[in-house]
Simulated assay, not measured.
Amino acid sequence: MAKLANNATRLLEAIDYQLIVTLEHCFDLVEGQTLWLEVFGDVTVSGSVQVEVKNFIDDLTDGHINFWNTLKNWLAPKFKQEKYAELILLTTQSYGATAELRHWNDICAEERLALLTRVLENSETRVADSEKQLSKSVKTQQFVMSYERRSLLLEVIEKIKIISDEPDLKTRAVGARSRFGKGIDQSKRDDYFQSLLGYLIEPCLEKDGWKVTYDDFGNKIARLFARYGQNSREFPVVDAAIFEGEDKTDYADRLFVKKLYEIEYAAIVPSAILEHMVAVHTITHEFKRFTVEKVDLDNYKHDQLKRHRSLRSAEMRRCSRKPREEWCLASQDFFDARCGEPVDGMPTFDGTSVEFRNGIWHMLADDEDEEGKEKLHWRLW
């Protein structure tokens, strides 16, 4: 499929890249620190560092607009450079073959100022020789090098560090998954990583700006480890949306569905099918990353069936005293009352989802009666 003229892929990649860099700095936070995203710049850590992130392919030359725009931003009146020990330009760009900027991190403030002065002089000479109008890049250089900003410029350039040749988006993402995924179940690393990025971009309407604190981030990591960590005790959550595209026509002939039609409760059939699918998926896929023994699952099913039979027997006696035409309605009430009961927990876990518990009931209802022994039914006759 051909890309549109206004394709925004590069913009989205730049946003993704910045979020991954932000995540890296979140893991570097120390107690008491706050990280600000797109408030004072791309990524800002209180009292420590301000980072401008550039995801570009072309070479970083002495006159490249990325470098000079970053200088301009750090010279803005509203930017309080005195609050930071370090100002970082982090870019995927490699230095151009003749770029003097490659020596930036190794020279002092006076030498850096001399370098910038030469760049501006060369730019103005080229413009004069070509008799062309000043480009945006040259105008930015003149703004940065103006004499009224010279004292501030010297303070700023002393703090600047250039980090070039950074990994591309895919490489950086893979590395972040690996470094920050230690202790996370291998099959859940993608979910864990996506949850972290989602946490960074979720609206913070109740906070003063778009920020992440050391404490908030630590709490988020703890919650995600409880869910996705190896040997977690939190019951696995299954997103029902993954079943939306599946063909459910075969379920019409399933025994557990027929048992719901038997009590004239067609309205509940779609949710029952979904609960059945959740339970099957949980057992066949999610339980693989936990120490769930088959005997534990068999015992859970046995206990659920035994309790159901006992409760159903009591309701059957009450229902038998009602007119026959009310039996289906009474059975529907019985179904609803059962689904509203607190969930019995599975061994190994601190909790168990309602969808899974109900799905187990539908799995039990899908079994045929054995001779002299009924399986799970909803009818009270």
Rank of each mutant, 00 (worst) to 15 (best):
Q133K: 08
Q133W: 01
D129E: 14
K136T: 15
N69A: 12
Q133G: 14
W74M: 10
E158A: 13
W104R: 05
G96P: 10
D129T: 07
N69K: 15
Q186I: 12
T61K: 13
V138P: 06
E52N: 10
E148Q: 13
T61H: 09
I107D: 02
I65C: 05
L113M: 12
L120Q: 07
K161E: 07
D190F: 03
V144Y: 03
I157A: 08
M145E: 09
R150H: 15
S164W: 10
T91W: 04
F56R: 13
A176S: 08
E121R: 13
I162E: 09
Y84W: 05
G175K: 14
E111N: 03
I163K: 03
K161V: 01
I65A: 05
T140M: 04
R189T: 09
F143A: 08
N55Y: 09
K188C: 04
D129G: 02
F143D: 05
Q81K: 05
D185R: 11
W68L: 06
A76V: 06
I157G: 10
V53P: 09
W104E: 00
L60S: 05
N73G: 06
G63C: 07
N66K: 11
E52A: 13
D58E: 11
L87Q: 01
A173S: 10
S151T: 10
A173H: 04
D129C: 08
A114L: 11
D58S: 13
Y147C: 05
D106K: 08
Q142C: 10
N105A: 02
V156K: 00
W104N: 05
T70P: 03
L153P: 15
N105S: 00
